[in-house]
Design a protein around this nucleic acid. Structure first.
Length: 361
DNA sequence: AAGACGGGGTG
DNA sequence: CACCCAGTCTT
């Protein structure tokens, strides 16, 4: 790694950073204490997710599941509902598995050593370092995107931060930079600086407490850092979905499998089908073969465009007429709107749910 | 080492 | 529209 570590005055860096953090840190619900469970939940929610988005989810999660024991015994439906709309749903399935293990194998106490804590589902190098430092005051690095951006500028690191190797190099530099400062404050200060001042587009160098320790600032290249490889464009998937109601006004929904995209979430029956081909016939064949449901696809009533990080769904939604569902199979069920509201749907299918709700109103 | 895995906010 | 966000797991 090419960095100018020897060029940075560590004592001045620590003093300036911590003084700034003590004055400028935000009041956040997971900062009211250092309870390891609360810190852990916040760190998982915050993965790839903005603070403002997380706050309401976090508050509700802590109302529903105040302790590891409460969460461990929760039903899967409620666990998924707690995460509905947050994305990256494997986070909550892994967290549930991990907290159950904490209750069963560690007496409900979150492990305070790296080996045990890191072995839990969904706990990677960042989360391990964050919880051990923030909740247990251990001098572990917690290197996230904010920290890499700040340090790539302060230390003038030009390596690609999307590479795993680069993150490890930053982790090796942290102990020296952290020195004898309180680990919880130091790590959070670095992240807070990245979130509030040392931002991606136009960093607020004039307001920055460590601008005189920043190599990129000295050379005027802060805008060019960090270096990050480009992502490829998401692939397009054309889908057809259908709304089918039975004689009692209940509609048919399906639960996705336990692996892959949107695992364990509920959805309207749908299949990949190019809009140029006959989507209606594809849908009818799919329903009969996969769910044992005979129905006729009628007019299209809605079009849903949904963008994921790696693909785009273009869903044409049809209205269906039920003919026969005596031999229903697959993970399907008929639900009322009230029942559906207790289940977790991906945002793309919440849009379809909304259409039905408006029709019924 | 690269790709899968969500959703929303920003310039 | 492109990029980013308190990353981890699988292949």
């Amino acid at each position: 790694m090419s960095y100018y570590h020897e060029g940075v005055d560590e004592n001045a860096f620590q003093d300036n950073l911590l003084a700034w953090y003590r004055e400028n840190q935000r009041e956040l619900p997971w900062r009211i204490n250092q309870d390891p469970y609360r810190v852990w939940v916040s760190e998982v929610m915050l993965q790839q997710t903005r603070v403002e988005t997380v706050i309401p989810y976090y508050e509700r999660f802590m109302e529903w599941f105040p302790t590891p024991e409460d969460f461990a015994k929760a039903e899967e439906e409620k666990v998924m509902k707690a995460w509905e709309g947050l994305g990256y749903y494997s986070r909550v399935r892994n967290l549930h598995t991990a907290v159950k293990e904490v209750v069963e194998s560690y007496g409900g106490k979150v492990p305070d050593n790296k080996k045990d804590f890191s072995s839990l589902k969904g706990v990677g190098p960042y989360t391990a370092g964050a919880v051990l430092s923030i909740a247990y005051e251990q001098p572990e690095p917690a290197v996230d995107g904010n920290v890499m951006r700040v340090l790539s500028r302060v230390l003038l690191v030009t390596d690609d931060i999307s590479k795993g190797k680069t993150r490890k190099q930053f982790e090796e530099v942290i102990p020296t930079l952290m020195g004898g400062t309180p680990p919880s404050e130091f790590n959070q200060a670095l992240m807070e600086l990245g979130a509030l001042v040392c931002t991606p587009k136009s960093p607020g160098c004039l307001l920055c407490p460590v601008q005189s320790q920043c190599e990129a600032r000295k050379q005027g290249v802060q805008q060019e850092l960090p270096v990050k490889g480009k992502k490829k464009a998401p692939a397009l998937k054309e889908m057809a979905a259908i709304i089918i109601k039975d004689s009692k006004g209940k509609f048919l929904i399906h639960q996705r499998g336990s692996k892959g995209l949107l695992a364990r979430l509920w959805e309207f029956p749908n299949t990949e089908a190019e809009a140029t081909s006959s989507q209606k016939v594809d849908l009818e064949t799919f329903l009969k073969e996969e769910y044992g449901v005979e129905a006729a696809a009628g007019d299209s009533v809605q079009n849903v465009q949904h963008v994921f990080s790696h693909l785009v769904w273009d869903i044409t939604v049809y209205e269906g007429t039920l003919k026969n569902a005596d031999e229903i199979k697959g993970n399907c069920k008929w639900v009322t709107m009230e029942e559906a509201r207790k289940l977790a749907f991906p945002v793309s299918h919440q849009k379809i749910l909304k259409t039905i709700e408006e029709e019924e109103a």
